[in-house]
């Protein structure tokens, strides 16, 4: 009696089904993968919905002379600042993921390298990668669109410090989650920052959000940076109050992220996952 239920040749729906089953098993076993499916459409809808509201309100209030140029500066500048936040976190997380991809993490974890030293190295690499990626782009913005981000001067340095510290905090938590949960959580490294995008009010003012969501937005340091950026652009003022508040929240955020990272490393050691890195 043959153990085969059907002929081996030709197109087999059963084999297609077997592969679909394989991917469903994987999907079902990993909450970050499932969250990723829901997450993108939601983020897109919310971000563009609020932007539409902002433009609608501006149009209803009537555009001032030169407002189009200022609005263009808002978008290019906001994109560049957003990239500092996003690429900063990505630079941190990808450097960490390199160790996971190359199955080198156990070598590092059993070397004399302290977690805090590892974190300091990842922070350094985040700045290096950001500089390589973003410096030429700010030049391109001047060349193509006549928009000079550097004209923000000292304010840019303050914006940068606040954004990079936020990006490190998020990078730390993502790295800890990958250590604890394995490569199934890798997708968070690429997507988690976009969860902040609508709430950080990158392209529109906080006032566009519903009141309850404004309360959430004001808990995030990048919100203060983007509000501060618009104040510098539209009103030509440097809002030190916003930057100090952002720095204070960042301090709490970073300290919490370090504590969470250390707790996740300990949890990974308890679960034995440092020796079993995989999907």
């Amino acid at each position: 009696m043959s153990v085969f239920s059907e002929a081996a040749g030709g197109f087999s729906p059963a084999r297609v089904g077997a592969m679909v089953l394989r991917y469903l098993y994987l999907l079902r076993s990993s909450w970050p993968r499932i969250a990723d499916l829901v997450y993108w459409p939601a983020v897109q809808m919310i971000t563009w919905g609020f932007l539409q509201t902002f433009i609608g309100q501006a149009a209803a209030n009537g555009m001032r002379p030169g407002a189009v140029a200022v609005a263009a500066g808002n978008f290019i500048g906001a994109v560049l600042l957003w990239d500092m936040l996003f690429r900063g976190q990505l630079g941190f997380s990808v450097s960490f993921l390199e160790e996971m991809w190359s199955r080198n993490i156990a070598n590092l974890m059993m070397s004399p390298l302290r977690p805090i030293e590892f974190v300091a190295a990842l922070m350094t690499m985040s700045i290096v990668r950001l500089a390589i990626g973003l410096l030429p782009v700010t030049g391109l913005a001047i060349w193509f669109f006549g928009y000079n981000l550097w004209s923000l001067g000292v304010a840019l340095a303050v914006f940068f410090i606040n954004l990079i510290v936020t990006s490190w905090s998020i990078g730390l938590v993502v790295s800890g989650l990958v250590l604890r949960n394995g490569m199934g959580a890798e997708t968070l490294a690429w997507t988690i920052m976009f969860l902040l995008m609508p709430l950080a009010c990158v392209y529109y003012p906080v006032s566009v959000l519903p009141h309850w969501l404004q309360l959430v937005a004001w808990c995030l340091p990048p919100t203060y940076v983007f509000e501060g950026f618009r104040a510098a652009l539209f009103d030509h003022v440097f809002r030190g109050d916003l930057m100090v508040t952002a720095a204070a929240i960042n301090l709490v955020l970073f300290a919490s992220a370090v504590a969470i990272f250390v707790a996740l490393v300990d949890s990974a050691r308890r679960a034995g996952s440092l020796l079993q890195m995989g999907e």
Binding site: E98, S102, R103, N104, A106, M110, S111, P112
Partner: peptide, 28 residues
């Protein structure tokens, strides 16, 4: 201390010398 396991690897894109240099520094 140190260890070796076939289930743990080293960064593939680094040369052998670069990998050993990194670990030399990590171990002081």
């Amino acid at each position: 201390m140190n260890f070796e396991s076939p289930y743990v690897d080293m960064p593939h894109r680094l040369t052998v010398r670069q990998n050993l240099r990194v670990f030399g520094r990590l171990y002081g």
